[in-house]
Design a protein around this nucleic acid. Structure first.
Lengths: 239, 239
DNA sequence: CAGATTATTATGTCTATACATAATATCGCC
DNA sequence: GGCGATATTATGTATAGACATAATAATCTG
């Protein structure tokens, strides 16, 4: 029984997926170990490892040392969402980007914001509100607090030509961030600026970013009606 | 100048990230090639490759053969969102899961659904609506069409005890899917079932899944107010 | 000089081997 | 039989070397 010899890791990945789909290896099933698979596929163990590791990252397999590799019981859909810079997002749609700042002042943030930016002791923050427009039409309203203890340089920026969104990305590197998506009712001023009725559903992205342990900024982005985040799931099978 | 010798790929990843954050390597900068970095770090090229590949997958670097590796110009936040089975999601919150089916009938879907499930020629589909409850409270309303040409077995399932969501995941493997997130106004029956006012903002997930080129199902999940998808971004630095 | 061909280069990957590490299984002891 | 020490096992990772591949740069040719 001379095997067709799977020579690259994608081919092995596809074959493993095929067996999962064909229920040769049903959910929960412990699959053969890397050495055996390498022998069966006629390749090095490192190649099998590469294929299985990729499948584990995609959520199809669960791997534990000594315990082995099993087919995931709950095949969660693991989608990767790219959240681009707003200017980029608009220009990628073939529309022209404009930007209008509405307010900019230094203040102590409300406790809800303090909890995220400076949980230990309140510090001065820069509060900026602005609107991003696509071909002249309101696209997203930005309500941002910048931690001046982490980013003192922000105090010297007036943000009337370049948005805080872009300035921060270009100036202040971050190590990690929290993001959440919700559907909320458009509040007063927000609704007016987005050109929608009060109480209309708006898609909201809340994001807080840090540089190591120091919070940089927290922002609420409320998108005009019709906004949709698209993504896809699925193992990168060469269909 | 004896280097500290970076012996594992995570250490190399951290060092590369440090240089990016420190603006030693600003956005757009072409970093040294793998051979040089391996020499500098005192490790094998494969180890450098592992570190850089991981950073490229995270969106921090852009790599092209021959052209080399450069720091990403637009550091898009690449977030991975796990979309679990609904029962799992509710039970993970420590709440009890219940399920109520509302309607189930075989019919030709409307054109908007046909476009996704059977673009070539209309086929019979199973239309199921149901409500998932967390500790007795409405959690998410499910409006699903199942392609009977792809999944004929679904016609024999009444879905009164097990939800279509779970049955499909356990029975029909899929290769890939489209997902989108929107904020929409709760429509009539939907609003009543979710226990919210009509027109109230609901978070909606639309998903269509395929097995290779054959569409399996398309579903609209509208979540009760307060629903929030959380995720995080950031390179896996060992902070 | 334009266009086609060839050389160069950096990443992509495979191999074989070795050792590290975490988790389980087993054994010996009380 | 219960419990702690030890052996075993599968994955995780590092290494040096090799060849593949894509994209660019250089060169040749009409």
């Amino acid at each position: 029984m001379s095997q067709p010899r799977f020579r690259n890791w994608q081919a092995i990945q596809d074959e493993v997926l095929r067996r999962i789909h064909a229920r040769d290896w049903p959910p929960g099933h412990v699959i053969p170990n890397e050495v055996d698979l390498a022998a069966e596929f006629g390749c090095a163990r490192a190649t099998v490892n590469r294929a299985l590791r990729a499948l584990a990252e995609a959520g199809m397999l669960e791997r534990r040392r000594k315990a082995g590799t099993r087919v995931a019981l709950h095949p969660v859909s693991r989608a990767t969402v790219d959240i681009p810079v707003i200017r980029q997002e608009i220009e990628d749609r073939g529309q022209s980007y404009t930007y209008r700042m509405f307010s900019r002042k230094i203040a102590r943030p409300p406790v809800s914001i303090q909890a995220r930016l400076c949980p230990d002791s309140p510090v001065d923050c820069l509060h900026v509100t602005a609107l991003h427009l696509a071909s002249g039409v309101a696209y997203v309203f930005e309500d941002r607090w910048i931690n001046l203890a982490t980013v003192p340089a922000a105090a010297n920026q007036n943000f009337d030509t370049i948005s805080a969104n872009e300035w921060l990305l270009a100036t202040v590197p971050y190590t990690h961030g929290d993001i959440s998506f919700t559907a909320e009712a458009a509040a007063g001023a927000e609704a007016d600026l987005l050109g929608t009725a009060r109480g209309a559903p708006v898609f909201v992205i809340d994001r807080t970013t840090w540089d190591h342990d120091r919070a940089i900024t927290t922002v609420r982005l409320s998108y005009a009606p019709g906004y949709r985040i698209r993504t896809s799931v699925g193992t990168p099978v060469s269909v």
